[in-house]
Nucleic acid binder design. Structure first.
Length: 251
DNA sequence: GTACGCGTTCTTCCCCAGCT
DNA sequence: AGCTGGGGAAGAACGCGTAC
């Protein structure tokens, strides 16, 4: 069971969030609450948390400030709740290595999906083994290009319906221009990159897990299973099932 | 370097049928 | 139930030219 810290300046919305889900069924225990940055920092000095949830609803500026401060102090996964669709906010969240960003209104199914994603990450790489050189400051000094942000978005939101249009809108760039810039830098179109990332992840899931193919399709962002079958065969030359059998034989 | 318009090409979705 | 693939329609991405 992973330990979660809820940072909620507002007691009412804190209760709403607490009651939104059967947390323990998702592998998390709401271990502590903080209603200010100083409270949260004090808790982090004495305890190790796997996940920090920060409410942006009362004030996005304060929420992001809390996020920034806590990121410098802790390697825990962070989920931001109730923010707007404003790109500047999203961009900052990405730079702070936030695991997920759920915009307002926060729906229980979104939060559940987010917890599921974080749990998988923690299962693979627990907080205490995370390298600390991925801090915001080091990330800031690297000055990631816009294409790096696009790629980062693809990696983190692969399970979602990703379109260049959506990303370019968030990044405040023209869709055609961003696509052109992406191709210039990566020598492949945005869709080729997206397909490659999805297929490589699907291959790993087929090899390493016993997930159903429709579950894997969903995990890598395909809502239509038939389309996933088509693209997978086109990409690998084998159907998903054949690929799994082959990889099992040679494993 | 950035942005937009527009025609073309490609991807995705949806529906369906058939196989194991 | 789960997997595979064909075909059509709609929407998204791409390529190219142009402008600031």
């Amino acid at each position: 069971m992973y330990k979660a810290l809820l940072v909620y300046p507002d007691n009412i919305s804190r209760e709403e969030t607490r009651l939104m889900l059967p947390w323990e069924q998702h592998g998390f225990r709401l271990h502590a609450y903080a209603d200010s940055l100083s409270d949260a920092q004090a808790l982090l000095r004495t305890q190790l948390f796997d996940l920090i949830l920060i409410d942006l609803k009362p004030s996005q500026a304060i929420g992001m400030q809390i996020c920034e401060q806590l990121r410098e102090q802790s390697r825990a996964s962070i989920i931001l709740l109730g923010g707007s669709h404003d790109f500047q906010l999203l961009r900052k969240a990405m730079a702070l290595q936030v695991s997920d960003y759920i915009a307002d209104p926060v729906q229980p199914e979104d939060l559940a999906a987010s917890l599921c994603k974080v749990k998988k990450e923690l299962d693979v790489q627990p907080v205490h083994s995370k390298r600390f050189n991925l801090s915001y400051e080091s990330k800031k000094s690297q000055n990631p290009s816009i294409i790096d942000l696009v790629k980062q978005y693809v990696q983190e939101q692969m399970h979602e319906n990703i379109t260049l249009k959506k990303i370019s809108s968030m990044l405040h760039f023209n869709c055609a221009y961003l696509g052109q810039k992406f191709k210039d830098q990566e020598n492949m179109s945005f869709n080729e990159y997206l397909l490659q990332q999805r297929m490589e992840k699907a291959k790993v899931l087929l090899e390493k897990t016993d997930m159903r193919i429709y579950e894997i399709a969903n995990e890598v962002g395909y809502t239509e299973i038939d389309w996933f079958y088509k693209k997978f065969k086109e990409y690998t030359g084998a159907s998903a099932n054949e690929y799994r059998k082959q990889s099992t034989v040679y494993a």
